[in-house]
Amino acid sequence: MADAVIKDAVMKDVVLLDSGGSNYASLIAAFERLGARCTPSRDPERIRAATHLVLPGVGSAGAAMRAIGEQNLDKLIADSTQPLLGICLGMQVLFEHSEESDVACLGLIPGRVTRLPEAPGIRVPHMGWNSIRSIGSNPLLEGLDGCDFYFVHSYAAPCGEYTRAVTEHGLPFSAAVGAGRIHGVQFHPERSGPQGARLLANFLELAA
């Protein structure tokens, strides 16, 4: 898995939906290592021209939703037709509501994001490498059932009909979700070694 590559010869043109955050360097590098182009943008024309969209997480849910609203990204996301991948907080804001900042989110996936409960031996933030168990067959997670990914978060989405992979930290939560072209992962594929590269390559194989 060390040499994850995109089989499809067409140049992938990934746009990171730019809500004003600045920590995009590692994501851009991860896509570039796969031979894709990857640029942050909030320009509607540029977003329409992309083959794939990524929604990175920036700060807290409240700050992220405010920035998304200010940049009209909510409208652009709703109108887009390409495969979209929300990462970490970018996955959480796909849901209806987040307990973090008690804020209404994009509502593309039903459910409410809540804080992970602490328990003896269960520390929050959930920080480090943890394994995922995939549910059913899913092209995004192909070849990755049981693999470890890097997680850093204090809030999590519940398990439900949109759950594509489950991870446990005290309680089970959604490590990956999917609803049509909308996908999300709670972990950071750009920081998850060869398995993370495989996931991003799988994402780039998804067609609109």
């Binding site: 360097a25 590098a29 570039e32 920081r191 070694g193 993370g196």
Partner: peptide
């Protein structure tokens, strides 16, 4: 470093 490595 950020560009080159794929772990945190």
């Amino acid at each position: 470093v950020a560009r080159r490595i794929d772990i945190p």
